[in-house]
Simulated scan of single mutants.
Amino acid sequence: MKKTLLIGLTLLTLSPLAAMASCDSVKADITKKIVANGLPESGFKLDIVANDQADKASGQVVGHCDNDTQKIVYSKTSDGSDDTTSSPKTGTSQDATAQ
Rank of each mutant, 00 (worst) to 15 (best):
K3S: 11
L5M: 10
L5W: 08
L6S: 01
T10R: 00
L11S: 09
L11T: 01
L12A: 09
T13C: 05
L14I: 03
P16V: 03
L17V: 08
A18Y: 13
A19Y: 12
A21D: 02
S22G: 14
S25R: 06
S25L: 08
S25P: 00
V26A: 01
D29T: 12
D29V: 03
D29P: 01
G38C: 05
F44P: 01
K45Y: 07
L46G: 01
I48C: 05
N51K: 10
N51D: 14
D52W: 11
D52F: 14
D52I: 10
A54K: 14
D55T: 15
S58P: 05
S58C: 06
S58Q: 15
C65N: 04
C65Q: 04
N67K: 13
D68C: 10
K71L: 07
I72T: 11
I72M: 03
V73S: 06
V73H: 00
S75F: 00
K76F: 05
K76G: 09
K76Q: 13
S78P: 06
S78A: 15
S81W: 06
S81A: 12
D83V: 11
D83L: 13
T84H: 06
K89G: 01
T90H: 11
G91M: 02
T92C: 15
S93A: 12
S93H: 10
D95K: 14
Q99A: 13
